[in-house]
């Protein structure tokens, strides 16, 4: 991944040298051409074509912002309701993620999504403990959110 990005930057620099003009626009054009070249040569690289991961990361960011706004509307609904009929609970959610980096990202995303807050990891990193603000009607939805986030994160780091 990092190797491919370095290769892409080198291709962009060579493009700027060939044009004999050194502006940001030339560099950008060279970078796009480098992406195309890497796409053509993707069979010879050891890893996946890296731009797909970049695209997955952009999708994850958009999903995150959507969930953040939904979460805030949720919390404000709960706070401004005249009767606080909430049933908080702590749920253990099994995860398939392995590296520390993925788990940290998942915990941060869970903390900023509707009605959930990450609390603890089990020692073997098989479970993440989540405090949910309103459990009974949300159990399934929480699972679903976890699945979407996990799948998005796995797409990025696969």
């Amino acid at each position: 991944m990092a190797y491919q990005i370095l290769l892409n930057i080198v291709i962009a620099l060579i493009w700027a040298f060939l044009q004999n003009s050194y502006t940001g626009v030339d560099f950008l054009v060279g970078y796009v051409i480098g992406i195309l070249i890497l796409f053509v040569l993707r069979r010879f690289l050891k890893f996946d074509f890296y731009f797909r991961r970049v695209w997955a990361f952009i999708k994850l960011t958009l999903l995150f912002f959507k969930e953040l706004i939904k979460a805030n509307i949720d919390v404000i609904k709960i706070i401004l309701s005249p009767k606080l009929n909430i049933k908080p609970g702590i749920v253990a959610v099994p995860t398939k993620l392995e590296t520390d980096w993925e788990l940290t990202l998942l915990a941060a995303l869970v903390s900023l999504t509707p009605g959930t807050l990450s609390m603890d990891f089990s020692d073997d990193n098989k479970f993440i403990y989540i405090h949910a603000i309103h459990v009974p009607d949300k159990e399934e939805m929480i699972k679903q959110i976890q699945d979407t986030f996990e799948r998005a994160i796995l797409e990025v780091t696969k």
Binding site: L68, A71, N72, V75, I76, I78, I79, L80, L84, I86, P88, S111, L112, G115, L117, M119, H131, I133
Partner: peptide
């Protein structure tokens, strides 16, 4: 408002963190 109204530490930190 949420920090004032909600009943315990955990629910309060929901409001504090997100909003």
């Amino acid at each position: 408002f949420g920090i004032i109204r909600l009943p315990d530490v955990y629910t309060r930190s929901h409001a504090a963190t997100k909003s």
